[in-house]
């Protein structure tokens, strides 16, 4: 599904990623952990195609195609989805209108006609139910005045609507109470299939109790310095990140 080879990236001439190698296969869940400022969110933004980030070296291959030069919307059309750590508030655009536009633009890019209105409504209703989203919520302006939990549920709702091949969840657990966390995790788990893959970026192990990863990677100073199974997450929770830093700096 996704192959990242020796990825170096910088923002405003400051190098953040210093050689990331990662392979994610279809059906897998990978967790990426690491201390603050290690490059986790940068990796997410670089995969999704944020313009401010400069790829200095390396490849991002999605299903055999190099997507490193594509615009963010073109990557989305190929099946990349980023759940934002801080979803942007867009007053004046309703959740529903936003979703309709996103779906139909994606369909257009894939050579498909617009989704018929009744089908769209049905899909919206179905996915809103999955995330326990009230219908009134859908006519509100995108993320405007949403609570932290509502914003994250809305992100996963969008993911459910767009059915990406590769979903990257950037700190989806931050700002969530335990109920919202369960709803969000439940949504993500129900969307999992053998044909898609998920990268979960998190600082804490908590989310991984709900979304159980097949692999855990630790980023430090722009590199993946340790990989392992889900038990690595527990170890990090117990011991913190200092021992990793020491290992790396030794």
């Amino acid at each position: 599904m996704l192959k990242i080879k020796d990825l170096h990236a910088s923002v405003e001439d400051k190098t953040i990623l210093r050689g990331i190698n990662l392979e994610v296969k279809a059906g897998e869940v990978h967790a990426i952990m690491g201390p603050n400022g290690s490059g986790k969110s940068t990796l997410a933004s670089v995969i999704a195609g944020k313009e401010e980030y400069e790829v200095d070296k390396g490849d991002i291959i999605l299903e055999g195609n190099d997507i490193g030069e594509l615009e963010a919307d073109e990557r989305a059309h190929k099946g990349v989805f980023l759940s934002f750590q801080y979803p942007v508030e867009i007053p004046g655009v309703s959740v529903t209108n936003f979703m309709k536009t996103a779906i139909n633009e994606t369909r257009k890019a894939r050579g498909l006609a617009d989704m018929p209105a009744n089908e769209m409504l049905k899909l919206i209703r179905e996915k809103a139910e999955l995330l326990e989203i009230d219908r009134k919520f859908l006519s509100r302006s995108l993320n405007q005045g949403f609570s932290g939990g509502e914003k994250k549920r809305n992100e996963i709702f969008q993911m459910a609507m767009l059915e990406p091949k590769l979903a990257i969840l950037d700190e989806t657990d931050s700002g969530l109470d335990i109920d919202a966390l369960r709803i969000v995790a439940n949504g993500v788990n129900k969307l999992k299939s053998k044909d898609n893959a998920t990268i979960v970026i998190t600082h804490y192990q908590r989310l991984l109790d709900y979304i159980v990863p097949d692999y855990v990677h630790v980023i430090y100073d722009g590199r993946i310095v340790k990989s392992g199974g889900k038990e690595l997450a527990h170890e990090l929770e117990e011991k913190g990140y200092d021992w990793i830093k020491e290992e790396v700096n030794a």
């Binding site: 944020k50 989305a76 867009i90 767009l162």
Partner: peptide, 8 residues
């Protein structure tokens, strides 16, 4: 970026 990341 938010809008474009959704395929718009």
């Amino acid at each position: 970026f938010y809008l474009r990341s959704r395929g718009i």
